[in-house]
Design a protein around this nucleic acid. Structure first.
Lengths: 308, 308
DNA sequence: ACCCATGATAGGGAAACACTATCGAATGCT
DNA sequence: AGCATTCGATAGTGTTTCCCTATCATGGGT
């Protein structure tokens, strides 16, 4: 009892005060909401001071909390400064060539780039957008250091670090009966016109797989050959059919488009996104830190996905 | 791996750098030496930097360590500042009346007072030196807040918080054959002239008890009526007999005296020193903090005792 | 009146912690 | 030389803490 606060507890306080929201704050720290609640509560109990006032609809910092917040921030910053100074100078610095598959890049990068700039300012990030097999080739011959792609990755030369999981949803024409629907079963796709990305996109393979394993025949035999999700979404809103979208793309792609969204019944089909690097890389530990930065930026920037 | 350092690890680094000695540093933090070693080693491993150079006979701070030490100190201080500011203002502040029995006070206070001044600067300590029963009376009627004494304490109105354990040793004339001896058995006291403190000192009761339970008859029936250990030590060095000393008194009392010391065989007789306060006190938690300050100051100031 | 969002709570499995006991190396004493 | 001592590292173990998933309670919005 009355023990000194831990760094995690101080971070919890600072984050909650910043976000005024437990769930977001927890995501930004890479922990679950109950863990954050308990960290904060433990510290408040130990110190005998209430720092945060929890109204069921609103979170706000008490007067004591306002007074203590700069001190907590200073403590956290001091610890971080120590860590930053102690890590070798080459840690997360210099050029890093990052590959990203096309069905992730446009939606992930807007939250990813600022986070990397903030947490690893010495990292010069070079982003290469390409399909899975070409990214793996790039890793193999050294043009890339790391890559973000979807499982499955069948290449024994690389190892993977989980980042997040996301569901697939269906993008349908706005006037389609399924717009806004939930609980759709894959087998119901049998009678629908389906559009797919062109060959080579892993998302296409996965969507086709979902269809085939649900008894939907002829999947993927359409003539549409869209090269990007943006293009295919245009086709959908023109009423030519429906398509699979990863959840993380919904927000951007439905913006200003005549588009409806239908959700699958649990367990919804989906995909796991991972960070990949050469198994033999000497920087594996560094890449674990990088993955953690990604996970945290994803947790706040794309709240519809599940942190791995 | 590569996790951020904990406060305990930072404290470990600072303490080792300060003391240049693992054991002392561990004592100052109130942990065991292996615990300290591991804390430091874990942090060094996580950060990938060696902070401390361990030569088997000497401990010194590496160049990296020298550079990082101020940062670590700043981090620890920031956390402590937060804690100090967060605890209620009345915490460990204001007047505190502390009773201490006479066979402890002269040896404990020199290390105790600076430590309290350092760790609880707002505490105005009033020390009352007196015998056990009068201290208990003082606690009961409110003249005292806490007291330091030896077990057993047979008073249901108070509760006790362990501080440390210490052995008894025998102070003998310098020319006595037992000077410097170890492995003495209490039963060997049968043929020796024993001196005791006057009635009312708990140390007297305990010494007599040791003798009686070892079959040494007539113990305590001598005519000497010494009122303090300093006095009795004078009698011993004059060759009038031998006496029991608590281990913590040996260093001071043998200074400049014609005195030899003999140690008992394991398990040596001894006593447990505790902090006592009214069971009904509203400040019990505060006193636990106070006890912890005492334990730490004892661990560095009186290394011959065993922290409880 | 229903539903959704939010934070608190319960319970369990895993990881970290801190202790005791012991070791190996190096020094200093006789 | 030889022996005892001192110091930090290591082994092994039991406990605590941590953090997750699942669920609950409560209040506002529709």
């Amino acid at each position: 009892m009355r023990s000194t606060p831990t760094v995690a507890q101080l971070r919890a306080f600072v984050a909650v005060a910043e976000f005024q929201h437990f769930r977001d704050a927890a995501a930004s720290l890479g922990v679950s909401q109950p863990t954050l609640s308990q960290s904060l509560l433990t510290m408040e109990t130990n110190l005998g001071v209430q720092l945060i006032e929890r109204n069921p609809r609103k979170v706000l910092v008490t007067a004591d909390g306002q007074f203590l917040l700069p001190l907590a921030r200073a403590a956290v910053d001091a610890v971080d400064a120590f860590r930053a100074a102690a890590l070798p100078d080459s840690w997360l610095s210099g050029p890093l060539h990052l590959g990203v598959i096309p069905t992730i890049a446009p939606y992930l990068l807007p939250s990813l780039l600022p986070a990397v700039h903030l947490e690893a300012p010495d990292l010069q990030l070079h982003v290469h957008e390409d399909q899975t097999d070409r990214l793996l080739a790039g890793l193999a011959d050294g043009r890339l250091d790391v890559a973000i792609m979807a499982l499955p990755v069948s290449d024994a030369r690389v190892s993977t670090e989980p980042l997040y999981d996301e569901d697939f949803v269906l993008a349908v024409p706005a006037e389609h009966g399924w717009a806004g629907a939930t609980g759709i079963l894959p087998s119901q796709l049998r009678d629908e016109e389906l559009l797919f990305l062109e060959e080579g996109h892993c998302l296409r393979e996965q969507a086709v797989e979902v269809c085939l394993s649900s008894g939907v025949a002829n999947a993927g035999e359409t003539n549409a050959r869209a090269a990007s999700l943006s293009t295919i979404v245009q086709l959908v809103s023109a009423g030519l059919g429906m398509t699979f979208l990863p959840d993380s793309a919904v927000k951007v792609e439905t913006r200003g488009a005549q588009l409806g969204v239908a959700r699958f019944a649990d367990p919804a089909p989906g995909r796991r996104i991972v960070l990949v690097h050469r198994r033999t890389s000497t920087r594996s530990e560094e890449f674990e830190d990088f993955a953690e930065i990604l996970r945290r930026s994803v947790a706040v920037g794309m709240p519809s996905v599940r942190r791995a």
